[in-house]
Structure formats: structure tokens, C-alpha cells
Design a protein around this nucleic acid. Structure first.
Lengths: 267, 267
DNA sequence: AAATGATGTTCCGTATTATGGAACGAAAGG
DNA sequence: CCTTTCGTTCCATAATACGGAACATCATTT
């Protein structure tokens, strides 16, 4: 419960700078956060001395610095799941020709921690480090497999179920049912629920405790990702890899909150 | 000059955690940094409450958290050069079939800020956010084009010229000459100078002020990246893209510290 | 099973350290 | 040229971060 004020303020400053790509001025920050200019200035100086913040060369605005990236790179390096999954991601990308993503759960959001680009020129916009809501994305729904009813309820309370397209799930009941189905079949389909024109198939990965530790997905434009393909063709390869990865994490089958499906193990 | 102690300490903690992928304990941190356990604990609590640090679920070790990645993602988003260069990177990757990188300079090191993977199975290990030394890498030497003699001298004093392979440049004079040549021809070749078996070609990108603002490279195993190919075939495409990007940044030709070469502009 | 040691966590009095106001300089805008 | 806004520096104040000690938790040893 004990918190360090100056550190909290510094983090808030960085998060504020993250919001605005153009950066912010001392005055703007001090106003926005209700702090004295001198306080903001001092914190910025310290952050800048270490490279976590830098000053725009033309306008003098303060913005995030390179050290943020360095930390993130080490964070990614320490994620075992990322190394484990790399080969599968490459394989899936090669087989499907579409973008493949790896996500983990953080604070009721999906966070992209790896991706393999499609070779096609028409591509989805995405980026490692980006966050997405759970109810409207393939990876999100796959991650929801690990939630019990209470957790889903809390999620809805906290974030709501905002509509993005006409197929977005916006009812609690609907989401509950969807999760049950995904749990049964082992994969999730995002039917243009977040972005019109993008269809996606995703699957959860379980760890040795039976907890959902990540999710993988294949996504692409509906012209190539046809209903046919997503429902008939892709589920098997998707399950192949999600089960392989779960196995690598020590997953041995059922667990309290999860029933796994048929699917023989592979090679 | 005025620095905030608690913030500095917090950053040091995070940097220490970055060093060890397994994370660290309170005791270890407090010993290593000469702080009271309670102090370290308090800082960690604050960092953890915000998601910049997390506790290993099995062993309780503290390690970097997801928020680091989120910040980095925003940092990358604010880099204009990255968006500008994306198309060129894709094109270069497609044409060459090898890994393509985009780097910027930070504190006398090259920092990878983007890459496009090769489709070949045999691939170099690299990662966005990673750092590399300047004297022994293609991108590094390309970035050095923007250094004057004093800066090179300071670089050598600060970092030295450590040898990685038998072709690594380890003499100041040799480096100076190399830089001059690169400046003339507009591109740099890394002849297995950092990693045995990897050959690479790189080129600097200039901004509207004539300053070097980034570097791009194509790298791959010597079996595919033959001397022939790197010296005859790739320079032209490399220059094409580096000049295009420089143009996009408002570069209009020569400037005090730089002589540009022939090369007509393109479409 | 009891004891030892090492670690993580909480509490609290102290004074170090972060704070914000004011004053100064510099730059921008009218 | 004057006015305003912003960035930076200085300083007295007290709020806040600090570290020691006590407590809790766990693992290992005897």
C-alpha cells in the first residue's frame, strides 16, 4: 500500500507522454497533472538523463526516449513463451500467408508480444506492444477461455462491451455462450467483430497448471480469409500448433476450469 | 543537475532487472545497490502496482512487467522515420530475401527500431530494441558517417574497439579510413566483422539538416550473401532506398559534414 | 520436530529529500 | 516595444522517502 510519490508521478508523466506522439511541454504536463512546473521539470530532467525521455530537437517538446525500448526488448527476451512459440508462428505464417500474432493477458486486455508479417501487400495494422480489448478480438476471446463467470462479469463492469462493428458481441449472455463454445472447440473465430473486413482465427495456449498463458491467431482480409477457409481449413492447423505449444509448457490435459477437446498430439 | 533520488534508484532497479532474464529478489537487489531492503521493497511495490515490474509466479522473483512494452510501443509509434521507412524495408526484404533492419543512433550505440524477417529458415538472431556497437556492424558504420574525428575519438575512448572476429576493425586509423570510404560510396559493408558467417550491407539516411538520422541494412549468411552479390548487386538497390528515404526526410544533397554521391533520384 | 537461517513484508521515528512558490531569462506573439 | 508564455534556477519548508528493527514466512538442517 505504501507508494513512492515521486516515482508514481514520474510514471504518470511517461504514460502521459505515451498518449501523445508529439510529446508535451513542461507547462502542459504541470497543468494536466496539477503539479508545480519545477516539480515536473525536475522529474523530466532525471528521466532524460537516463534516456527514458528525450526532447524533440525542433520544438523542445518532451517525448519518450530510447531507453523505454531497451527495457521492453529485455522484457520480451525474458518471456519463455515467445521463444517457444517462434517456430509455430513462422510455420503458421508460411502455411497461411497471413499475419500471425502471439498475445498474453494483462489487466483485462490482450497484449501483442510477437507477430510474423504476411508477405501479402494488403496487411493489417498491428504492432508488438499494442493492446486490444478481449470481447472483440480473436486472441481476446481465446484468452477469455481462462476466465470464470465472475471474472467475465468484472471485465464487463470495468471495460464494458463497446461496439466496433455490427458483429461485435455486446451482450453479456452472448459473450458467456461464445466463451463456452470456444472452450469446447479449442479455438475462437473473430467474425469482423473489431474491424470490418478482417476475419481471424485464434487459439488459447495452456501452461502446466492448466491456466491460459497466451493465445495465437491468424488474421487477414475477408477476401482471402473466407468463411469456408476459417471454418474448415484453418482450425486443424491452429489446434495442432496450440496443442503443441501447450504441451511444451507442460500442459497435460484437463484441469478444473478447462475441458480440452479431442485432437491427437502430433509428431 | 538536480536529480530525484527515488526515481534514479527505481530506474536502476529496472535496469538491473533487465540484465537478468530470471529477475531478482529483494535481497539481491538491496545488496547489489546498497539500499535497505525496505527501500527496495517500497520502490518495487510502486513499480509493480503500475505494471512495470511483475513477480514471477513460481519463484516470486521480481522481473520487468508488461507496461515496459506498452511504453516502448508508443515510443516506436512516435518515430516518423519508422513509418516512412516501412515500405522500403518490405521492398528490400522481398527483393533480397534476407533480413532487413532499421536503426537509429543512441548514446554511441546503434539501436534496432524495426526489422523485416527473411523468409529463409536460416536466419540471424536480432530483435527490435537491441543495441549493437558501431565499429563492427553495417548499420553502426553507416551511422558513423555522421561523426566527425573528435566524435570518433570519443567513441573509441568510451567503448574501445573490441574484436569479435578476425575481420573486426580494431585500429582507430582503420576505422577513420573506413568511414571516409563509406561517406564517399554511400554504403557500408560488414564483412563478418561482428559475427562469423554473417555478411551485411548498410546505408545511412540523412534528414533535412544533412544529419544522419538512421541506417538501413540487409544481412544474411555468407552462403547467400556472397561477396559478388554484396559488392555488385546490392549497392544499387541499397542506395536507391537510402536516397529515397533521405529525400522523404527533406534532405537536399550536400551539407557541411557530408558529401553525397552520384545516384539519380528515382520515381 | 525443533531450530536455524534467509527472505519478504510491515511499522515507525527521523532528517534527508522532494516539493512548490517566486524570481529570473528567454523566446514567442501582438 | 511591450506583453505574455514558457523553461529553468533557487531556496526555505515540511512532507516524504528513508533505513533500522521487528515481524512473518518459508526452506533447510540437525
Amino acid at each position: 500500500m505504501a507508494q513512492v510519490q515521486s516515482l508514481e508521478r514520474s510514471l504518470s508523466i511517461m504514460e502521459y507522454l505515451a498518449r501523445d506522439p508529439a510529446g508535451a511541454s513542461v507547462a502542459q504536463l504541470s497543468q494536466e497533472m496539477g503539479l508545480a512546473k519545477s516539480t515536473v521539470h525536475r522529474l523530466l530532467q532525471t528521466l532524460m538523463a537516463r534516456g527514458y525521455v528525450q526532447q524533440d530537437q525542433q520544438y523542445g517538446h518532451y517525448q519518450l526516449g530510447v531507453q523505454c525500448l531497451t527495457l521492453a526488448s529485455h522484457f520480451l527476451g525474458q518471456l519463455d513463451i515467445r521463444n517457444l512459440a517462434k517456430a509455430s508462428l513462422m510455420q503458421l505464417s508460411k502455411d497461411s500467408g497471413e499475419v500471425v500474432h502471439l498475445c498474453i493477458l494483462d489487466r483485462n486486455e490482450a497484449v501483442y508480444i510477437d507477430k510474423v508479417e504476411s508477405q501479402q501487400t494488403l496487411r493489417m495494422y498491428s504492432q508488438v506492444g499494442r493492446r486490444a480489448m478481449l470481447h472483440c478480438t480473436g486472441v481476446g476471446k481465446a484468452l477469455l477461455v481462462g476466465f470464470d463467470e465472475q471474472q467475465v462479469e468484472r471485465l464487463i463492469q470495468e471495460k464494458g462491451l463497446p461496439r466496433f462493428t455490427d458483429t461485435t458481441i455486446t451482450e453479456a449472455k452472448q459473450l458467456e455462450d461464445e466463451i463456452k463454445q470456444i472452450r469446447q472447440q479449442g479455438y475462437a473465430i473473430d467474425e469482423q467483430e473489431h474491424e470490418k473486413g478482417i476475419r481471424c482465427i485464434a487459439a488459447p495456449i495452456f501452461d502446466y497448471e492448466g491456466k491460459v498463458s497466451a493465445a495465437i491467431s491468424i488474421a487477414g482480409p475477408i477476401e482471402r480469409m473466407t468463411k469456408e477457409r476459417v471454418q474448415k481449413d484453418l482450425p486443424s492447423v491452429m489446434l495442432q500448433h496450440s496443442q503443441l505449444l501447450s504441451k511444451k509448457l507442460g500442459y497435460r490435459g484437463c484441469s478444473k476450469s478447462t475441458q480440452m477437446i479431442s485432437g491427437e498430439s502430433l509428431r
